[in-house]
Design a protein around this nucleic acid. Structure first.
Lengths: 205, 205
DNA sequence: AATTGTGAATTGATTCACAGCT
DNA sequence: AGCTGTGAATCAATTCACAATT
């Protein structure tokens, strides 16, 4: 794992966006696209798109643009997003169970293989096991799970996170409204709905 | 509205985080806090916290720190987050109805006053009206709603957004996996779950 | 002629270092 | 003595400008 560390996280985010735009182009049987056009679809400047791609190599043809298939494949490779990645979800409340039903993850390459809760209730319509949280550590170890979605209340978020990290989780998508303290080798992305709303409300007159 | 435009959006985000940490301190009857301590709780450097606050004025006492109540009140004022802000939610699918049930918004100062869907089904357990989307424009106008949560499929997101903006919506919290095109006076914050996961997967070995 | 790829310039955000209060 | 507030310095990200390539 050589250079991963010094590529801006924002560039990685944007790669995912470019990827999505490329899929749309592919559906429409477009096979070549300029940085100008792709950047417009992704809502960024064309120079930024080119700089983002430059971190990983050269994929375009001057005078012509990018081959949609090639670029799409390349970005998939870079994002390491080729094999199905197993994920667990912890905290089967309102938000947690909605995300389980949502299911849009699978086609993006993620499979929620199990969910955990302090007091798991059977949910017939979901076809994944909902297990008591005491079994979480063993499960993570046995199934070599590296990613987790955290949808527990703020009060237990840090505690649950500690357990997950101890068991080997390396990446957490955190929906709990709290700041998580994790060791350096663990990555956390937080989505805080209240903060997003608050932020918006600042900008309206 | 003079200076709003040149304060970094990231600072505004962090204000919300500070606010949450302050609430926790208040619950514990702490009445003074240093920038060092508060910054630690928020997961940032103390100089950054002080710089963030400096955009709005001087609220601390040198040698002592900040008064928790005063600072909390001040941040509320800055965020314009004092009166209950009405919000609509559009797209009552899995994610949409989960957010409606979630309800954590109210205590943060936001009230979801109505939800809209192409084919609204009555949902007894929710005590807000779920209305057909054709009534959205009138509703926005009549109730002077300025904020919307968008949870429709990507394919209709832009179309629905155009209608909302025409009716007077000024801020959108977008969960649809697509880039929205809006006029300058409208703010969009996007939460893209698949992108967040993809981003994490890049950083695990 | 068109469009990429990239050093240089610019703009923006963070951190440092310390003067100024209490 | 301790801690805030802030100009200066550093670090990071974006945009410009244009040479290189098809």
């Amino acid at each position: 794992m050589p250079t991963k560390i010094d590529i801006p996280r924002k560039s990685i985010y944007r790669l995912s966006i470019y990827q999505r735009c490329l899929s749309k182009l592919r559906e429409n049987d477009v096979d070549t696209v300029s940085s100008e056009a792709l950047a417009k679809a992704a809502g960024v400047k064309s120079t930024q798109l080119r700089k983002d791609l430059a971190y990983f190599g050269q994929f375009g043809t001057r005078g012509l643009g990018y081959n949609v298939d090639v670029l799409s494949k390349t970005i998939s490779d870079v994002l390491g997003h080729n094999r199905l990645q197993p994920v667990i979800l912890v905290g089967v409340g309102n938000l947690g169970s909605a995300l389980l039903r949502y299911g849009g993850f699978r086609k993006e390459g993620f499979e929620v293989v199990a969910a955990f809760d302090l007091a798991p209730r059977r949910q017939a319509e979901l076809n994944i096991p909902i297990l008591p949280i005491v079994e979480m550590k063993d499960f993570i170890g046995q199934h070599q799970v590296k990613m987790a979605i955290l949808t527990v209340p703020a009060s237990s978020a840090q505690n649950v996170t500690n357990q997950m990290v101890e068991a080997g989780i390396q990446a957490v998508l955190n929906f709990s409204p709290t700041v998580l303290d994790v060791p350096d080798h663990v990555v956390v992305n937080s989505v805080d709905l209240a903060v997003e709303l608050e932020n918006l409300s600042y900008f309206i007159r």
